[in-house]
Amino acid sequence: MRPSQSLVSVIKATLFVAALVPFARLAVSAVWFPDALGANPAEFITRSLGDWCLRFLLITLAITPLRRITGWNWLLRLRRMLGLFAFFYGVVHFSSYIAFDHVFDAVAILKDIVKRPFITVGFTALVLLVPLAVTSTNAMVRRLGAHNWRALHRLVYPIAALGVLHFWWMVKRDITEPAIYAAILALLLGYRLAAYLRETLALRWARGANGPPATSRRG
């Protein structure tokens, strides 16, 4: 599948609108139909936003494997936007926590961040997302240079892991849901590790084929 530039733009615009739907739904419900959000609307909102942050992180991380497997290079044109949506949902998730759980009480929030491991890791993940969001523009890619930019953006791997850990430590007893996120993340990172190992070994093999066999190279 190799869509035209204009088709990719249409796909991207559609995806942009679709990515805003969960937020719009919550916002509309919160203002006009709080009953639709159940008995604990604040918790529902905060958790939904957190879910979407994690989902967008995983979707963003799925682009590279998907592109490699299918050969659809145009997928790359969606990645930045998806990553920024992960950041967006992370920010509104944190904002809803500030507003509903602490009603903007800065001292209580700081205490929470320091005292509660699941909030500590969640907050750390969000803070680490900031430099990635800031350096997401073309100008910043040029300024950093492709190599540095790529190295910096590998931060998304530990960020996603912290995000899943944040969810895992938050649940009271039933870890089914965080385990599903963890499994998907393991798959996405595992793919990269496998690809890396394959490439490294292939490279060695290639070197070995030209020169002495890899195993006895030093011998």
């Binding site: 919160a30 709080p34 604990n40 604040a42 918790e43 509903f100 009603v103 699941f118 938050m170």
Partner: peptide, 19 residues
């Protein structure tokens, strides 16, 4: 406190703000 969250305040269902 519960080791993972604070017990200082509570949210009276279905109120929005936990204060």
């Amino acid at each position: 406190d519960h080791p993972r969250w604070s017990q200082e305040t509570e949210r009276r269902i279905p109120e929005f703000f936990s204060r």
